[in-house]
Design a protein around this nucleic acid. Structure first.
Lengths: 176, 176
DNA sequence: TGCTCCATGTAACACGTTACATGATTGC
DNA sequence: GCAATCATGTAACGTGTTACATGGAGCA
């Protein structure tokens, strides 16, 4: 399992509440590892029970229940252990490829509208990633090792979106 | 859910036993939609109960329990219905990106060995896909609509593997 | 005889998704 | 005052993974 490790990583980057983590999982880390807030709260409870993290009422809690989670040494050690072991490559699970194959098997279903929708969506994401890249990584100042790694991860997202746009465009040409 | 629809598609392409389906999910359709044999048996049982497919003792069963599943009209209708509705883009879930981010946050973990391993693996897959492409799609004879769609799907796999190799190579350069 | 592959399944558990619930704070 | 957002959770269910079980067929 690596949701717990994704949460650990995110918490090392910045101690936070479950709610803040959930929002961060809708951005940055969530671009390649999605999670709902329920999953995150579940993991936080488990990791606290395991002694990987600790929590206390958040500094800015006021009268709310807001808690802040911090990573303990045991958590850091576990993350380092996990990150150093080999992992299987991600497996693709692309519903749309199944649909294309269904189209091929059944005869014409006309998936062109869907292709157009997907192209628009990937273009939008690409534009968003490029904005982040401009702002965070292409400002000319030298980048830390950490920033260079983050840049490479973002570039992977950019390459992925570009690939999707190109391939979907070619597919559209074929079906058109 | 679309495991059931992936199974339906595969069954329309060719009526088969659960076991044969499971092996096909380790190849072709499995390149972008993985499933274990238990999942497949579970889905077959459900779909038979729902009246989407029917089964009988396989023609080549002999004294074994081998069964053959066939798609019924209700199954075809369901597949067409599902394929025509919009679907969310696939979400990436790449463990290695989490590891890189953990490396960035914790300090040096030395993921170069893992990068080399991944490059070798993607090269192998790429070679395999290219062989299939040569054999099935680049023989010079004209291709049916069905074959052209299958070719595009395979090309997506090829582009993906090429992208992985290039990006992992660049990452290796950065960490080296 | 023993090994591997074919073929189907049960059971238990881990993970992911969806719906619902609760109460405080912020902005109009 | 009302709606939206912040913040945390419970419950139920669906999907995915792992381990184990069973028995026939083919082969050395």
């Amino acid at each position: 399992m690596s949701l717990s490790h994704a949460v650990l990583t995110s918490l090392i980057e910045k101690s936070s509440s479950g709610y803040d983590l959930a929002r961060r999982f809708d951005k940055s880390i969530g671009y390649f590892w999605h999670a709902t807030h329920q999953q995150i709260y579940r993991e936080l409870a488990r990791m606290e029970a395991a002694g990987w993290i600790e929590s206390s009422s958040a500094p800015d809690a006021g009268k709310t229940r807001k808690r802040e989670y911090r990573v303990l040494d045991a958590g850091r050690a576990e993350l380092a252990r996990w990150a150093s072991e080999p992992s299987p490559p991600m497996d693709l699970r692309d519903e749309f490829m199944v649909k294309l194959r269904a189209d091929a098997a059944l005869g014409e279903l006309d998936l062109r509208g869907e292709l157009l929708r997907r192209i628009a969506l990937h273009r939008e994401r690409l534009a968003h990633y490029r904005e982040i890249e401009q702002h965070d990584f292409l400002h000319g100042k030298p980048l830390s090792r950490e920033a260079r790694i983050h840049h490479m991860i973002l570039k992977k997202g950019i390459l992925y979106e570009e690939g999707e746009i190109a391939w979907n465009g070619e597919m559209l040409g074929m079906l058109g």
